[in-house]
């Protein structure tokens, strides 16, 4: 009866000790490893994030770089006039044209 009690106590203690063993061991982070060199620190913490930033920025601006400069309301318009369905010789046709000669109706609008 007594020996059984001793066995049970020893077994209980032993199981606690066995389970707690990893906690008693030295933690991974406690042992100092080799320090990173200054160059490697700069590469990992500065150059790689900067590179990732630049790559993302490049791809996000790529579509608008490929497009023509888009019309933006309020900006000056400094392009040559374009006339679709106009006369063959616009300059000479315009030189003889007078306002009110042919226009009868229409509409105007602003934006």
């Amino acid at each position: 009866m007594r020996s059984r009690l001793v066995t049970a106590v020893v077994a209980a203690l032993a199981s606690v000790v066995v389970v707690a063993t990893p906690a008693l061991a030295l933690d991974d982070g406690e042992g100092k490893g080799k320090p990173l060199g200054a160059g490697l620190v700069i590469v990992i913490y500065v150059l790689i994030p900067l590179g990732a930033f630049l790559v993302i920025a490049f791809f996000s601006t790529l579509p608008s770089m490929l497009r023509r400069p888009r019309y933006r309301p309020g900006r000056a318009w400094k392009h040559d006039p374009l006339w679709f369905g106009g006369p063959d010789d616009p300059d000479s046709a315009l030189s003889s044209a007078r306002p009110g000669a042919t226009g009868r109706g229409g509409a105007s609008a602003e934006w």
Partner: peptide, 11 residues
């Protein structure tokens, strides 16, 4: 309007 009517007349 004048400019537009001139363009129209030039057609």
């Amino acid at each position: 309007r004048d400019h537009a009517e001139r363009l129209h007349a030039a057609l």
